[in-house]
C-alpha cells in the first residue's frame, strides 16, 4: 500500500532523512520507533506531502506521490494526524470536523460520516459547539483523529497520538487504534510508548538519525538488545563477555 525507497528529506541544508526505505502492506499496522529528533515525524510529513522528498520515491496505492501537494495526496485516501494534534483552535468542534470532511461534497455522506465519528467519540458530540482550543488534550486528540476519519482514509498516519496524555487516556487511544486496525484501516504509527505500540503492531522500524537501523515484528525486535536498551526500559544491556573480555 505504501512503499518508500531511499527517501531523503532536507530542512534547508540540514538532511533529516538519509535514504529511508520502508513498506506498509494493506491492512497492516506498522510502527516507527526512534529517539527524539530521529526523523520519525519527518517521515510522516514527507509521505503526506508537507515536507518534500529531495531524493527517492514514495508509492501509495500504486501511484507515485513524492511530487504531489498535500491536498492531492489526501484525495487519494491518506490522512495524517500530525504531532501535537493541530486542531483549529478558533473553530468549533463541529467546524473542525467539517474541515476534516472538506472534500466531501455530498450532504448525506457528510452527515453519516459525522455520526460515525460522533459515535466513536461521544465526547465530541457533547462538545459540538465548543471552540476546539478549549478542549482538553485528550479531547483534542480525539478530535484530531475524528477529523482525519471523516474521509474514511485507506491509510492513516498517526504521529505520537498518546503524547502528553494521562495513562487512562493513553489506553483509550490505543483501544481506538486497535479498533481501527481491526476494521481494516492500514496504519502507520509513530509512538513513544514503544511497548504498547509494538504489542499492537504487525511490524516495526527503528530509526536513528534519519536512518532505519532495524526492522521486524514485535517478537523479533523484542530480542534485540539495542531495542531493549533504548525503548523497553529494561536498563542497559551489556554482554557479560564485554565486561570482562578484551
Amino acid at each position: 500500500m505504501l512503499k518508500l525507497i531511499g527517501v531523503e528529506t532536507f530542512y534547508g541544508k540540514i538532511k533529516a532523512l538519509h535514504g529511508v526505505s520502508l513498506e506498509v502492506l494493506e491492512g497492516q499496522l506498522v510502527c516507527i520507533l526512534g529517539a527524539n529528533g530521529a526523523g520519525k515525524s519527518t517521515i510522516l510529513k514527507t509521505v503526506s506531502g508537507i515536507a518534500e522528498a529531495e531524493y527517492g520515491s514514495i508509492e501509495f496505492d500504486g501511484q507515485r506521490i513524492e511530487r504531489m501537494d498535500a491536498d492531492d495526496i489526501v484525495r487519494l485516501g491518506m490522512s495524517h494526524v500530525p504531532e501535537n494534534r493541530h486542531v483549529f483552535p478558533e473553530l468549533t468542534v463541529r467546524e473542525n470536523l467539517q474541515m476534516g470532511g472538506f472534500l466531501i461534497t455530498n450532504g448525506t455522506t457528510f452527515s453519516s460520516r459525522l455520526e460515525e465519528v460522533y459515535s466513536r467519540f461521544p465526547v465530541l458530540k457533547e462538545r459540538d459547539r465548543q471552540l476546539a482550543g478549549t478542549l482538553s488534550g485528550g479531547e483534542q486528540q480525539m478530535l484530531a483523529i475524528g477529523r482525519a476519519l471523516m474521509l474514511k482514509p485507506k491509510l492513516l498516519l498517526l504521529d505520537e497520538p498518546s503524547l502528553g496524555l494521562s495513562p487512562i487516556l493513553v489506553s483509550e487511544i490505543f483501544e481506538t487504534i486497535k479498533d481501527l486496525h481491526r476494521s481494516g484501516v492500514t496504519i502507520l504509527l509513530v509512538e513513544q510508548n514503544v511497548n504498547q505500540a509494538l504489542q499492537i503492531a504487525d511490524y516495526g522500524y527503528v530509526l536513528t538519525s534519519g536512518k532505519i537501523l532495524l526492522s521486524g515484528t514485535y517478537e523479533e525486535l523484542k530480542k534485540e538488545d539495542r531495542v531493549k536498551e533504548m525503548y523497553l526500559g529494561e536498563g542497559k544491556y551489556v554482554r557479560r563477555s564485554r565486561l570482562w573480555g578484551t
Partner: peptide
C-alpha cells in the same frame, strides 16, 4: 460556507488545512 471556513482554517493553521485536503494555494 465551506470555502469561508476553509479560509479561516487556513489562516489558523495552513499545514493542518493542507492535511484536510483543503487546497491551500
Amino acid at each position: 460556507t465551506r470555502w469561508g471556513l476553509a479560509m479561516q482554517a487556513t489562516a489558523e493553521d495552513p499545514m493542518a488545512a493542507g492535511l484536510m485536503g483543503i487546497p491551500v494555494k
